[in-house]
Design a protein around this nucleic acid. Sequence first.
DNA 1: TTGCGATTTCCTGCTT
DNA 2: CAAGCAGGAAATCGCA
Length: 269
Amino acid sequence: GTSEFICNMSITPSTTLESPLTSTWGPTIPYHDGPLVMPGYTSRLWSHDSQPQFWSKYQVWEWLQQVMDIHQIDASSIPFQNFDMDGHQLCSLNYHDFIRAAGSVGHILYNSITELKSEIYDPSVHPLAPNVSPTPSSPGKKKKMFYATQFTCILSDIKRSFSRSHQVKKHNPRGTHLWEFIRDILLNPERNPGLIKWEDRTEGVFRFLKSEAVAQLWGKKKNNSSMTYEKLSRAMRYYYKREILERVDGRRLVYKFGRNARGWREAEK
DNA sequence: TTGCGATTTCCTGCTT
DNA sequence: CAAGCAGGAAATCGCA
């Protein structure tokens, strides 16, 4: 096939709509299925390549989403509010803390963060032919960790491709659907510049405060500069039939999450 | 290449 | 009148 050069991470100058949201919600990174597995797959998922110790709260939250996604676990199965912390705090948690905070999923999260803390990935190194010295300041022990990490990556990839072919179909990675995009804005008040607001948090009722701004942001995510609230709302209305949203009549710009919308509740034990 | 899901685009008509 | 809301119909796009 034709191979196009996709320039998707263009950094646009600040506009009135520019917000912290856009800097971390870049477009999904395209990739082709190369060899057997992809090198550094895990690290590639994180747009923030910084060390977890320096993550912001939002990055921690993003990491949670990614880990849950990789392991095909529904995001609503763990209480995200237990991870309302920045990277420094996250890194200070021990194994039992993770179990306490996330139950059975705790060990997965613990393994992931331990892995990320232990080594800096080098995506340029192919795991099947790792003949590059890792980092300047890491002799023997760290080198071993490096290979262990790469091995874990391979395992993740295998697990992932296995899941892909044998488990529940998953058309899009988490966060690419409109309702998830909306939900994620709602769930990050500190990064939500008054775009959408909860009307009834426990009932899942919310209202657009800046409808066109949200549409622009959505358009930006989809690389569609001509997105409007008019068109976005049509997509929202399609969700009624699928019960991802419930109808709220009489109130303009107000919607409500339906039974098929996941991960918006604050505490479901 | 085809099929399908999830929008995107456009539109007519109705409501606030 | 300007925004929203309702849906139908058809076009797109990415992915399997």
